[in-house]
């Protein structure tokens, strides 16, 4: 079932001079109940702008966001159904409030529980669901008494309090210690299954994106350049940008000699291009063109979206039928 549908979303920011800056360019996708979609890209790719639009923290300059098939859902209803887990659990919890307060408020505000014992039970239940036990002890604590992982569990419990349909997780583990990252991701995965949540996992870590989501979208400068089933996109990347991302990930299994060889290949490829060519592409052309090792003349015009079957789609001239000879 489609929980959230995004059609032609455009996000723009006003600039002191000239045209507004377009951070997200006509983006469409759907979030399905019980499934995780990963949104991957480097800083400045527009991932956070997408999240801000979906969480209604910025007003989109164009497009529609349909919740349960309906457009323009009233704010109160929308905000209950779509919840966020933020990147930094050290900043997203209020240091002067107890854990109990953090969870009780959304329960009461969204009418999920009545004041008193009903709310007490609901708070304890939420803590149990995120494996923070003994619940009574944890509820009394303030954020500074908790570790980073525990805080992120509280943040997740808070997001679950209004019983949302959609959970937007913005780099939920990048601030956490390596040893607990997988536990938090496993927790989100379990909760997704138990509660039939539609999960949007925003990250720059390709490896966890692949392991924890059914589908991946790769964003580059406001556009999705490749999307499809996780294994397809990661193991068989077709867009040069996805290939670049995959090649940049550390390879744990490689020997020193392999690492050295790979480095020399990269160094050669880099010196062939200019080191810092990241200027704005004028016109309609492919935005990755200045960094692309396969750039052709045709790339100066807007690349078509090529369907490779099984939902794997790429925005690249290399994959289009009538491509020019490279």
């Amino acid at each position: 079932m489609t929980a959230l549908e995004v059609r032609d979303l455009v996000v723009e920011y006003a600039q002191s001079r000239g045209k507004p800056f377009r951070a997200v360019e006509k983006l469409s996708f759907t979030l399905e109940a019980g499934r995780t979609l990963a949104l991957v890209g480097e800083s400045g790719s527009g991932k956070s702008s997408v999240l801000k639009a979906l969480s209604r923290l910025v007003t989109p300059a164009g497009g529609q966001i349909l919740l349960g098939g309906r457009d323009k859902v009233p704010a109160k209803e929308y905000r209950r159904a779509v919840q966020m887990v933020f990147q930094d659990p050290f900043a997203s919890l209020n240091p002067s409030h107890s854990v109990d307060h953090h969870l009780r408020r959304p329960l009461l505000a969204t009418g999920r529980a009545r004041r008193g014992t009903e709310a007490d039970t609901a708070v304890a239940e939420l803590l149990r669901q995120v494996n923070l036990t003994p619940a009574a002890d944890v509820a009394r604590k303030r954020p500074h008494e908790l570790s980073g992982g525990q805080r992120q569990r509280v943040a997740i419990a808070r997001a679950l309090a209004p019983a949302p349909d959609v959970l937007l997780a913005d780099e939920p583990v990048s601030m956490l210690d390596v040893s607990i990252r997988l536990e938090i991701l496993n927790l989100l995965d379990d909760l997704k299954r138990q509660r039939d949540l539609a999960l949007l996992y925003v990250t720059h870590d390709l490896a966890t994106a692949r392991h924890f989501s059914s589908d991946i979208m790769v964003m580059y400068r406001g556009q999705v350049v490749e999307r499809g089933p996780s294994d397809e996109v990661i193991l068989n990347p077709k867009h040069p940008y996805t290939q670049l991302l995959a090649a940049a990930a550390p390879r744990t299994g490689a020997t020193r000699a392999e690492v050295r060889a790979a480095r020399q290949v990269r160094a050669a490829a880099r010196s062939a291009r200019d080191a810092e060519r990241r200027e704005t592409v004028v016109g309609d052309g492919c935005r990755f063109r200045p960094r692309c090792p396969f750039a052709m003349d045709v790339c100066a015009t807007r690349p078509p979206e090529a369907a490779l079957g099984g939902g794997h789609r790429v925005l690249c001239w290399l994959q289009s039928e009538g491509k020019a000879a490279a």
């Binding site: 570790s147 992982g149 390596v178 040893s179 607990i180 990252r181 997988l182 536990e183 991701l185 496993n186 390709l206 490896a207 966890t208 692949r210 392991h211 294994d231 990661i234 193991l235 995959a246 990930a249 390879r251 744990t252 299994g253």
Partner: peptide, 21 residues
């Protein structure tokens, strides 16, 4: 610690970190 990093192209497997602190 090694287990805490899923390999990008490796087999999908059950992933776990290091419980406790």
């Amino acid at each position: 610690l090694l287990r805490s990093f899923p390999d990008l192209v490796g087999e999908r497997r059950e992933l776990r970190g290091i419980p406790g602190s």
